[in-house]
Amino acid sequence: MGYLNRLQERILEGIIDLSKIYDRPVKSDEVASYLGIHPGSVRNAISALKVLGLIESRRGPYGGYTPTEKALIVFTKRDYLSAALMTLGGRPSRISTTITLCLTGRSLTMELRNLWKRLYWRRGRRIIVKLGRYVVDGLVLESDRVGRRVVVFVKRVVRVRKPITCEKGVSVRNLLALMTGRSVECALLVRSGRVDGYASLYYLLKLISSGLDPDTPVEHVFKPIPRSERLLNFLKIGYCRF
């Protein structure tokens, strides 16, 4: 699959977003209004996306465009580089810009060429990759000896949002109401201007289902901040299901 230009990428993301909001096929005029783009430009980009098999159309009064399974996430070459750097924890000089990632369904394939540093990704190792606005969390299925081609089984794909910060004394009940209202998965506990703990929406709901009193102060249930700088970076962008 070839690379998309910036306009095609924006329009594809707009179709994906509107399809989730309306739960139906969306029309080109709706996409144009949502993104603030001329309708003619939207129709031209949609034609290219249909050829690539990323969207499909439906005729009739209730017709429109819907993303295909192949179009779960598509990113530009620039995003590929940042994604690989987040995964490898290296500097731009350590790898070349010849990087390809393709995420379809439950499989993420990473192709890295001209590596300066050898990588050893064992089967079953967990990998968390930031791809644009999304975070992919999965396990390595296949990897060659130098890590230039890695296939990952995708467990979760999350569109991250800025985490909520709270202070000591806030109840779990109030924090859950705030997180669900803003569709945020991550909350950070701040003390004296410093991040001192974190919790995910999934973790808090699990505690409630286990019998935790919803009026318990959050500082009694928050997890300590991980020592790994890489994991801390994921917390700051809003992904915290560790």
Rank of each mutant, 00 (worst) to 15 (best):
149 R>T: 10
110 M>R: 05
178 L>H: 08
135 V>T: 11
187 A>Y: 09
232 L>K: 14
89 G>M: 07
132 G>W: 13
211 G>C: 04
217 P>L: 13
123 R>W: 02
98 T>L: 15
34 Y>D: 06
15 I>Q: 00
167 E>A: 11
13 E>I: 01
205 L>K: 14
38 H>W: 03
32 A>L: 13
103 L>R: 07
23 D>N: 14
121 W>Y: 15
234 F>N: 03
130 K>A: 15
14 G>R: 00
173 R>M: 06
49 L>I: 05
35 L>A: 03
148 R>G: 12
189 L>S: 12
40 G>E: 11
106 R>A: 12
130 K>C: 12
193 G>A: 04
46 I>M: 14
178 L>D: 11
229 E>Q: 09
137 D>M: 08
198 Y>I: 08
161 R>M: 06
207 L>Y: 05
10 R>D: 00
129 V>Q: 12
26 V>K: 01
90 G>E: 13
186 C>N: 09
131 L>T: 14
36 G>Y: 07
190 V>S: 09
127 I>K: 04
160 V>Q: 05
146 V>C: 02
14 G>C: 01
108 L>P: 01
105 G>E: 05
34 Y>H: 15
98 T>H: 07
148 R>I: 03
156 R>T: 12
148 R>Y: 02
220 H>T: 12
85 L>Q: 04
51 V>N: 10
40 G>M: 11
183 S>L: 13
214 P>H: 07
210 S>R: 15
30 E>G: 10
61 P>E: 12
97 T>W: 08
223 K>C: 06
76 T>W: 00
58 R>C: 07
154 V>N: 03
143 S>D: 01
207 L>T: 04
203 Y>S: 13
95 I>V: 15
51 V>A: 09
177 A>S: 08
